[in-house]
């Protein structure tokens, strides 16, 4: 075998291995075990990353800029009409900015998204349920039910489930893969 063929072979093998690992890392779902090569079919990340600068600036200045795909349309509509008491804070916006943000949230809400976790969140809700906290959704609860209180509520570096990025190291990018979880003071979480 000529040298260049050898090199080519090595490159090809490396590339395909890397590709496989990449798919498994990015798309591998934590503990869903939905049978077959679920991750192989997945083409979209957990939730769509935030792409709206106004939303990021207005909402992200006080808290993690939750991706719109983490709650359904009805939740966002309710949220944006009650900003004068936003979980105890005043977060009022001018009517124009409010509408701009609401339009973005609705267009990318969990029930309109084809991203993996968005679909699951939307699908886990009852028809008359309008959660204002992502942590109130059935899907969220199911995914976090094994985590002891000392890791979150009683962990001074976390304190609440509202701080996604405290443990999900790639939450900003819309990735909530279990293998990327690192709990402050505890370390990696694998169940």
């Amino acid at each position: 075998m000529k040298t260049y063929q050898k090199i080519l072979g090595v490159v090809a093998i490396t590339a395909s291995t890397t590709g496989l690992l990449y798919s498994a890392t990015v798309y591998g779902d934590d503990d869903d075990h939905e049978g077959g090569f679920g991750w192989f079919k997945q083409s979209k990340l957990d939730v769509a990353p935030v792409e709206n600068a106004v939303y990021r600036a207005e909402c992200g200045s006080c808290h993690f800029a939750y991706q719109p795909g983490l709650l359904p349309e009805k939740s966002w509509r309710k949220m944006m009409t009650g900003l004068e008491d936003h979980f105890g804070d005043n977060a009022e916006l001018s009517p124009e900015v409010n509408k701009n943000i609401l339009d973005y949230l609705v267009a990318n809400s969990a029930d309109k998204s084809d991203y993996k976790r968005s679909k699951k969140i939307a699908g886990s809700l009852k028809q008359d349920e309008v959660p204002l906290r992502i942590s109130d959704t059935v899907y969220f609860k199911r995914k976090h039910n094994e985590i002891p209180a000392r890791y979150v509520a009683d962990n001074k570096d976390v304190g609440s489930y509202s701080k996604c990025a405290a443990c999900h190291t790639r939450a900003e990018q819309g990735s909530y893969n279990e293998h990327e979880v690192k709990i402050p003071g505890v370390g990696r979480w694998e169940d």
């Binding site: 200045s61 006080c62 808290h63 993690f64 979980f87 105890g88 804070d89 304190g159 509202s162 701080k163």
Partner: peptide, 13 residues
């Protein structure tokens, strides 16, 4: 101190 960074009371951002 206006020259210092602060922290949101609830979210700690």
């Amino acid at each position: 101190n206006l020259a210092d960074s602060g922290k949101h009371a609830k979210t700690q951002k």
